[in-house]
Write a protein that binds this DNA or RNA. Structure first.
Length: 415
RNA sequence: GGGAGUGUAGCGAAGUCUGGCUAAACGCGACGGACUGUAACUCCGUUCCUUCGGGUUCGUAGGUUCGAAUCCUACCGCUCCCA
């Protein structure tokens, strides 16, 4: 299978500007492909992972991977379908850029991957240069027709965000010239921006200049719902924001119906390997073999093998049920990935304790959970609203382990 | 600038004409429980806060009234039509 056939098989291809042309160009020698991301936060999340995985596949297929961390575009704001973006301060942007560069480096490794900041060229451009050299080449009529702009005309869009597509177009042109980038990869919402770049290159470099764009379909689960959130929170790639354990569990908890789709889309496993996993899972779905493999593969890609081992060990400890016999040292080792809070070194009513630990947001909620038998402290179920929690009662007085519901653990560190 | 709408809990959406029975129907989501495979489906419960007496809510600020999400005034936001 070639690069494109593989993407199709994985359900990871939405639109492509010129399939034949791209394959031809790829066969003629090594070319680069790029994915751009703006530093809107200090970490990427699962939504960002998708284009990066396709870029990685491109790299595995013999291409050169180039990544833009958009210092300049991030300062402008890619228009969202709903409302204008809040601009970020320069300090925040700088901080985010560094954090994201580091993450991307971890995903791609040092060798052969180029990470650039578009501020290097966009930041130096003067306004007259911009208008003369680039603005002249863009038709407002065409720009207005881009879906994202058209959808914003009713509610309003600033001149700043309107201009975004030109900047992204310039990025593609710059990389086309500097890094032999011939392909831009993005989510399906990026189609308009990507074609801006392809059009610009064709205008400047000639209509037969090889430049292609490719988008990836939005991932949804089997019920059609948006993918990538857990309890309303984004799944981050930064271990400090989403622990490797939580990350692993996110994948492990996916339902049977989605496993095949996710294995294809989110792992680098070969087709026959995936078929084998799917067949084995179908035979004995209760063993959750597909989920385990999915969790392993994706966690390894993002956090490394050590994190996979740790997440598996932690999962084993948590779901075997009995935590009361663990030593303080074991607690410290095994539960490092669980959300933690500082516990006072004194007895306290359960309800107050739960709220102060941030496990529930109101006493009402905390009472309900206790009454329902949802709260377990140090392995013992607590159902009495008057129960006094003694944080020093177990684990050498160093830790309190709270479980809410079946799956959620919180570790209190006694002060 | 002129005109017509509209703003209700995390979201969607009733209630407004005909003021009290409304902490506010219903749906979704979320959270817990049962079942199970750490699943799906299904079922049950909860979903503003609380010292469990009560307290604070229906865009904001006033007003009328014994009593206002409901009536009046002003202001703010959003949508649509005309210019």
């Amino acid at each position: 299978m070639n690069f494109i056939e593989d993407l199709k098989w994985r359900g990871a291809l939405n639109q492509i500007t010129d399939e034949e042309g791209l394959l031809k160009t790829m066969s003629e020698g090594q070319i680069g492909a790029y994915v751009g991301t703006d530093p809107t936060a200090d970490s990427l999340h699962l939504g960002h992972l998708i284009p990066f995985m396709v870029l990685k596949r491109f790299q595995n297929a013999g291409g050169k991977a180039v990544i833009i961390v958009g210092g300049a575009t991030g300062a402008i704001g890619d228009p969202r379908p709903t409302t204008e973006r809040q601009l970020l301060s320069q300090e925040t942007l700088d901080h985010n850029i560094e954090a994201i560069k580091e993450q991307v480096t971890r995903l791609f490794g040092q060798n052969g991957t180029k990470i650039v900041n578009n501020n290097d060229w966009l930041g130096k451009m003067t306004l007259p240069e911009f208008l003369r050299d680039y603005g002249k080449l863009f038709s407002v009529n065409v720009m207005l027709k881009k879906d994202i702009v058209a959808s914003r005309l009713a509610t309003g869009i600033s001149y700043t965000e309107f201009t975004y597509q030109i900047l992204q177009g310039i990025d593609f042109l710059q990389l086309w010239r500097r890094e032999d980038v011939r392909l831009e990869i993005g989510g399906s919402d990026q189609w308009g921006n990507i074609t801006s770049g392809v059009d610009l290159i064709h205008t400047v470099e000639g209509n037969d200049a090889p430049a292609y764009g490719l988008t990836i379909p939005l991932m949804t689960d089997s019920t059609g719902k948006k993918f990538g959130k857990s309890e309303g929170n984004a799944i981050w790639l930064d271990a400090k924001k989403t622990s490797p354990y939580t990350f692993y569990q996110f994948w492990f908890n996916q339902q049977d119906a989605d496993i095949e789709k996710y294995l294809k889309y989110f792992t680098f496993l070969e087709p026959d390997e995936i078929e084998k996993i799917v067949a084995e899972s179908a035979e004995n779905p209760g063993a959750r073999y597909g989920q385990r493999r999915l969790a392993e593969e994706v966690t390894r890609f993002v956090h490394g093998q050590a994190a996979v081992d740790e997440a598996e060990e932690l999962s084993k400890a948590l779901f075997s049920g009995d935590v009361s016999n663990l030593s303080a040292q074991q607690i410290q080792d095994v539960f490092a990935g669980v959300p933690s809070f500082d516990a006072k070194n004194e007895k306290q009513n359960v309800v107050d304790f739960i709220v102060e630990a941030g496990i529930d947001k109101s006493k009402r909620q905390a009472r309900e959970d206790v009454t329902n038998g949802a709260i377990t402290i140090n392995g013992e179920k607590v159902t009495d609203l008057e129960h006094e929690v003694d944080p020093t009662a177990a684990y050498d007085g160093k830790f309190v382990l709270i479980r809410r519901g079946k799956k959620k653990y919180f570790l209190g560190k006694v002060q």
